[in-house]
Design a protein around this nucleic acid. Structure first.
Lengths: 254, 254
DNA sequence: CGTGTTTTTGACTTCAGTCAATTAAAGTGG
DNA sequence: CCACTTTAATTGACTGAAGTCAAAAACACG
């Protein structure tokens, strides 16, 4: 594997560095992780419920989502993922996948053998700690989603989701301030918020009329971040981002 | 600390053993973890949102819950916890608590210094792996809760919750088959399912009329587990329990 | 262009929430 | 042990937020 290979895992190194202090050897070990690159088309499955994956999938570019299907045919999106996310630690470490991971857009992904992850985690405690923290942060996000879907009304749910996405994109350097890529369809937003597509459409219209946010095709323009965060009841603590990130959103009112 | 002390952490050893293979030294190291015992009354806080806990709380006996408060005063319970659960890995590892942990009943808890956890996790990879897996399983439960609250109707939500609780109690040996301790009030069930107490009351009545389950004070009697799992759309994969546990529920129809 | 998504809108329905009052338990202290 | 307070459960009547159904308009793309 040559110089090309080295760069593939850069998003992972970048992210883990923000989660726990890593030295140069740690970073080198991350970049050196064995892996195979694959690109997948939008809506392709990375893992399906019931699979027994042997590799961990790192999302290098593009967007992905985790989905669960319920009995009556409904679907719930339980999280979205962006560059640098280990999209499948859980499924590969737990043996059998309890949910689906799907590409949302076309993605580039690195598949890393599970053993290599375990080895680096315990061979290099700093890396292990970072991976563990990543797992914990994802848990924190899931908890916030439970609260979002369980206890907020539709307008807050959507506003909250848009705020979260803005912060997470900022943290990885995509999504320059107040206009950012939002590749989900309204149906997907509905599945993420526990609403129906029709209602998402109406709520989005309301948010627009309120002058808070404007949804364009494939992206979103936030006009008043503070206002959006307010009706979305959004406080970013649960994302456990490094202190630098939140500042970006101070200027939300363009 | 004498022989008494050794037994305190037994629930933890017991649980971690089911998550990853541990040798005798691993178990001894777990039982040897420094800790202080405390008992807390029902509804006392173990951690509050915003705290910066330095200790990890292990629930030795009793029941606890994680709660998040939303802007309009609503509360969402995002998980329940039972004996053997590390109720506060997330908050202590992530620095600042993004949610509350509260005793649901009177509890006995062991508070273990955060550094001791980190040391054992990386000094004894088998233990570390078990802890990591515990974190991942909790994430899996959170995802299922997102789907439960987001996409199931009220009767399924409650039925699902009751099934999950039955399985989790079985896994730690409390809750002998079909009658088990269910210490939550209807208000707490409502906060866990994203419903109102009034509606929970009505749904519980319906479940009773359907002959599936009967709620008594402080406990619940399941008359038809298969039927309950059916309307609850409950499949236990996401709990990632050892294969032995599920069998107990084969005899659900007493 | 034409075909297939995705978005948008309107009319109507329903599940669950709200309000309010009652009953039943569970403590508490004299 | 019993009045007294508090907390939890129950019930009914009414409301409302979000869902459903259905059709039209707007894109996206080969």
């Amino acid at each position: 594997m040559g110089h090309q290979t080295i760069r593939n895992l850069h998003p992972l190194a970048r992210k883990l560095r923000t989660l726990a202090p890593l030295d140069d050897y740690d970073e080198a070990a991350i970049l050196d992780l064995p892996h195979t690159m694959r690109s997948l088309d939008a809506s392709a499955y990375v893992v399906r419920e019931g699979d027994e994956p042997t590799h961990c999938c790192l999302l290098v570019s593009g967007f992905a989502m985790r989905t669960k299907l319920v009995g009556d045919g409904g679907r719930q999106i339980v999280n979205f993922h962006i560059s640098g996310d280990m999209v499948d630690l859980q499924n590969s470490m737990l043996g059998v996948a309890d949910h689906n991971v799907q590409a949302l857009t076309r993605i580039e992904a690195a598949f890393i053998p599970r053993e290599a992850i375990v080895d680096i985690a315990f061979g290099r405690p700093a890396v292990g700690k970072a991976l563990w923290i990543e797992t914990l942060v994802e848990g924190a996000i899931q908890r916030e989603w439970v609260a979002n879907v369980g206890r907020r009304k539709s307008i807050s749910r959507l506003a909250h989701l848009l705020c979260e996405f803005a912060y997470r994109l900022d943290a990885v350097g995509i999504g320059p301030e107040c206009q950012y890529t939002l590749p989900m369809t309204q149906e997907q937003l509905a599945d993420a918020t526990g609403l129906t597509p029709v209602h998402v459409n109406r709520v989005l219209k309301t948010l627009d009329e309120m002058g808070l946010v404007q949804k364009l095709k494939g992206s979103v323009q936030i006009h008043d971040f503070a206002g959006l965060a307010d009706i979305g009841d959004f406080r970013p603590t649960y994302l456990h981002l490094p202190p630098s990130v939140p500042e970006i959103h101070q200027r939300g009112n363009a």
